[in-house]
Amino acid sequence: MSSTPTWVQLIYLACAVCFILALKGLSSPKHARAGNLLGAVGAIVAVVTVFFAADINHLVPILIAIAVGTVIGVIGARKVLMTQMPQLVALFNGVGGLAAAVVALLELSDRVGHGGEPKFDLAMTAFTILVGTVSFAGSMLTFAKLQELMTSRPVLFPGLPVLFGLAIIGALALAVFVVTDPMVWIGIALGIVGLALGVLLVLPVGGADVPIVISLLNAFTGLTVAAGGYVLGNTVLLVGGTLVGASGTILTKLMAAAMGRSVVNIMFGALKGGSTLGAG
């Protein structure tokens, strides 16, 4: 956003550096806790800055909404049992993905009817809606599996690969429509297909492999945030999201390698006929 003042851009740059150092710290046992704190500081500074950077209306409802989310987040994070932490991370990741999808839908609803929107912006908006909803639905399903609200065994039914393929084709078609003929209801339809895709993606994965899927969906959410940053013209979203997308992808590979498996095998192994627990 060229209208963003220079001092704001400088603060966003400092926040982006905080995120890089946070990931660096989190990679070493000695500095992990300090790294996490630095990441939190960067995030809080970025959030405070945005209130001064732009003419934000509806200030009171927004502050109340932040307070509500903060209370829910803190209570969830403090009450959770140590053994339930992976599914809590999945929940947090899911709501983040849904938030990104809603932001993109609102941006789309703001842009329809004006005409002459840059096609690439619309493509990024479609990407955020689709991948954000995939991440949300997938994360909720991983939560259900780990919390044993449903069977943690791979769920397979005849026609699942066909349904999965159809959902992908449908999603791509709707994404093209968002770009060529932007309308809000097409964006919503794209989000609904995204929800179905997220469910179909995670159903065939066995319980023991679920943490790796959470890591993969985490990387997905990172990329949706990056795309959202491009659409909104916000550098801290672009850098923060991309960092998580890239490091999350590598982390997923490392986690799979630690189990002696490949990511493709974990995601699609059950579809090829073998059990996801025994393969590899």
Binding site: P29, A43, I56, I66, G96, V225, N234, L243, L251
Partner: peptide
């Protein structure tokens, strides 16, 4: 550190809050 790193990275993409505030502020 795999799980804490995943969790920390997950928190960082919560920065979408900045985007959510922007779109809500211009509703």
């Amino acid at each position: 550190l795999h799980t804490p790193l995943m969790s920390g990275a997950n928190a960082i993409h919560g920065i979408i809050l900045v985007g959510a505030i922007l779109v809500t502020g211009f509703a």
